[in-house]
Design a protein around this nucleic acid. Structure first.
Length: 491
RNA sequence: GCCGCGUUCGUCUAGUGGACCAGGACGCAGCCCUCUCAAGGCUGAGACCACGGGUUCGAACCCCGUACGCGGCACCA
């Protein structure tokens, strides 16, 4: 089996979103599946669009998702440097080679001229393309321009006839007439390469075997293949992956809310879920199985199951999957992951307590950030609630009061709440004796103790809270009910 | 405008000429379980495979056209 070298080559223009990282993930999975290398390369050839901490944001995202790279700008490697901005001399050398071969030429057209040319083409309803006026310059004309020291760019001399077929393992072969391909700028006048020049040179020099990138590149794909041809190089295998769409079927963007992976992390999504979910965005195993651990993904991932059609990002399914992974966590692990979310919500919780709470909430959470509203009452000194909630289902104040008194007595008879099981038995017995449904009886006690109608299992929760705090709250609820009962009897 | 890519339940998808009156998952509805909420179990609704023509004994799968969606058309990546 031949060695696999793949790369993720972002430009540092901001935090990568799910779409970008999905592309990175597929490359990473393919590298790991084949025991190959995953390379991080920075495409920083456009100084204008660059963001200060762009690279840092990218590396943070990759690290969070557990996609480690074998070569990259921070760790180096045998094929460096990994910043394109540090490879300028290399691109220059290869551009010169192309010029010598006659596969590229210097163009002296100014941006204004080009703009005007395009406007005229548009007015005539023609496709907008460079008209190649500099391609046909005589040696004398060329020398004249050089003597003037005019700024120049290097353009690819695209064959005038014939066609180019683009091998793509996702879409299948695509064939394009060369007449439709523009004489692409390879080197800008500032000495920087364009993306097209840089990717081809770097992918070749770095011995990249497979290029998986976004669909938006397919229209410039011919230029890349033509470049490989011009150099006489064998191109790597290409696969253009479909874009990821938002719920409105538009390309995923800031408008769709959390787009950077770190935002998902802050909302309480687990890496495990995120990785699994992203893998399914444009890839499927067999249509049946969709839950995969990282190792299982590496094992199962193959190129032939990547799709060619775009996928809509479905938040509901991510939530479900996240819940699935939360349920699968060790409770100690869950507690540790939960703690920061409690702290951030202003709740002073300690790990020990959270460890006791974890099993109670584990199967109720879809996201870690749901923890605070679920258990805040445990940590609060005073709880606020509408006393009317203390009324049991289909019960009046007097009946509810009586039920809670009974519950209070049962509770008070226990020196501590450590024996959860016994506590529950006694409470049930009391409920039955009163002829109440457990739902009614526990419902009243629930509101008394927690101030909420929806909580984790009550008895287990009371055990965590401890007798003192529970009894205080029961006392207070009793007073509320007494008040209501008196008012009721007067009326 | 030109060039290209795409089109199977609301969503993600299985499917590569007969095993498909199209299977799974999320979501949705109902039931069971149940101290609330979840989780879990079961059941159900939901796709004339974008549309129209071919090819074939036979098409979701092959060919052609149309519609719609998306992408590109930069000295951006």
């Amino acid at each position: 089996m031949s060695f696999v070298r793949v790369r993720y080559a972002p430009s540092p223009t901001g935090a990568p979103h799910i779409g970008n990282l999905r592309t990175a993930l597929f490359n990473w999975l393919w590298a790991r599946h084949n025991d190959g290398k995953f390379i991080l390369r920075v495409e920083d050839t456009d100084q204008a669009r660059e963001v200060d901490n762009g690279l840092e944001l990218i590396m943070e995202s990759l690290r969070f998702l557990g996609m480690n790279w074998d070569e990259g700008p921070d760790i180096g490697g045998a094929y460096g440097p990994y910043h394109q901005s540090e490879r300028l001399a290399i691109y220059k050398k290869y551009a010169d080679e192309l010029i010598e071969k006659g596969a590229a030429y210097y163009c002296y057209c100014t941006p204004d001229e080009l703009k005007q040319m395009r406007q005229e083409q548009e007015a005539r309803g023609e496709p907008t393309r460079y008209d190649r006026r500099c391609r046909w310059l005589t040696p004398e004309q060329r020398a004249e321009r050089e003597a003037k020291g005019l700024p120049r760019v290097v353009r690819l001399a695209v064959p005038l006839e014939g066609s180019t077929t683009l091998p793509d393992f996702i879409h299948g072969d695509i064939t394009i007439p060369n007449a439709d391909v523009d004489d692409q700028v390879l080197m800008k006048s500032d000495g920087f390469p364009t993306y097209h020049m840089a990717v081809v040179v770097d992918d070749h020099l770095m011995e990249i075997t497979h290029v998986m990138r976004g669909d938006e590149w397919i229209s410039s794909f011919p230029k890349h293949i033509l470049l490989y041809n011009a150099f006489g190089w064998t191109p790597p295998q290409f696969g253009h992956m479909p874009v990821v769409l938002g719920p409105d079927k538009k390309k995923l963007s800031k408008r769709h809310g959390a787009t950077s992976i770190t935002q998902f992390r802050d909302e309480g999504y687990l890496v495990e879920a995120l990785v699994n979910f992203m893998a399914l965005l444009g890839w499927a195993y067999d249509g049946e199985r969709e839950l995969f651990s990282r190792d299982e993904l590496i094992q199962a991932f193959t190129l032939d199951h990547i799709h060619s059609s775009p996928a809509v990002f479905d938040r509901a399914k991510l939530d479900w999957m996240n819940g699935y992974y939360i349920r699968g966590l060790e409770t100690g692990d869950l507690a540790e992951r939960l703690l920061p979310f409690l702290t951030r919500a202003g709740i002073e919780a300690d790990l020990e307590t959270v460890k006791k709470i974890a099993p109670l909430v584990q199967e109720r959470l879809k996201r870690l950030d749901e923890i605070a509203p679920l258990v805040d009452f445990i940590f609060q000194q005073e709880i606020e609630y509408d006393p009317k909630l203390l009324l049991g289902n289909k019960m009046n104040a007097a009946e509810s009061l009586n039920a809670l008194r009974n519950a209070g007595e049962v509770l008070d008879n226990f020196p501590s709440f450590d024996d959860e099981h016994a506590l529950e038995q006694e409470l049930r017995a009391a409920s039955e004796k009163l002829g109440l449904k457990p739902a009614q009886f526990f419902g009243i006690l629930r509101v008394a103790v927690t101030g909420k109608t929806v909580t984790p299992p009550l008895v287990g929760t009371m055990k965590v809270m401890g007798k003192g705090k529970v009894m205080e709250r029961v006392e207070r609820a009793l007073r509320e009910l007494e008040k209501m009962a008196r008012a009721g009897s007067v009326v």
